[in-house]
Amino acid sequence: MENFEYAHPAKLKDAIAMLGANWSDAAVLAGGTDLLSLMKDYVEKPKRVVNVKGIGELEGIHTGKQGIMIGALVSVEELRTNSSIAKDFPSLVQAAAGIASAQIRTMGTVAGDLCQRPRCWYFRNGFGLLAQDADGKSLVPGGENKYHAILGNDGPAYFVSPSSLAPALIALGANGTITGPSGSREIPLANFFLIPKSASEREHALKPNEILTRITIPAASQGLHNATYEIRQREMLDWPLATASVSFRLDGSTIRSPRIILGHVAPIPWSATAAETLIAGHSLSEELSEQVGEAAVRGARPLSQNKFKVQLARVAVKRALLAALIQGA
């Protein structure tokens, strides 16, 4: 990795002041499970590394009237084993458990999971987030794209959003709090993720001098059901090939307010709105869940090597819905 200046502030305010106007000025270090490998591979070359692990105000899971507030520094393992979360939000526990490495769950943080960079192997091999050759042409459509996007892939971005927790959090209606030099703002987490349109853009709404400081999940409503279904090849630590997180309220046997969010199939956690419409107001059957899975991938445009991911996304939605129905809140 390149040499860098190291800072270890104790206050959020100080940490933000240490960030810069450009991404190359500084990087935020929390668990380090992604940043360190990016730096070792010379993909990220920040002039300064700001370690936020000592900032107490970013820690802890707090339950209040608005719901559950999760500090940025809460580890994935802490999230996975929290009893309030387990009681109301099994989809989040399942998503966290999908990170099948105790080491990464223990070191990695919730905000780090949301802010980690894509795993696209062109990006990680130094070809940039948009995987472009010297002429600005993307290497992905004509290259090795079996793990790339099948939705939201009009270009120039073809990577998939790597976050394990984001689909579940978005399906639960979570908000994210972003703190910068001029204070904090809270946005729906669904709006946190962006599809970059140029090489200078990033895949999320943070500015270089901002930190994602908190996630808030609204209190579980009566009859809330939710689940995450992940398809990955190996039992051991392995990136998901496709995931689906769903949540809905069960009114008798009628589905109300469904949310269906796909993971690892698009540059952002993918909201399957047509599928949500199809299911709202109906009672769930295996047949309907299959139709909903079908609707969730209707707009998919697979690349040369990843048609199989359409099938996987379809199945993930079906299985997540059926799992949510039986496990519920």
């Binding site: 099948a100 192997w121 990680r124 290497l139 090795e144 039992e235 051991m236 990136w239």
Partner: peptide, 24 residues
């Protein structure tokens, strides 16, 4: 995994050059 466009080996790591874990 080799990329014909760049001539590069895309997965020279233990993340995408996959080996089984105990449960596999």
């Amino acid at each position: 995994i080799m990329d014909q466009q760049t001539g590069r080996h895309l997965n020279p790591n233990m993340e995408f050059y996959k080996l089984a874990g105990m449960n596999d």
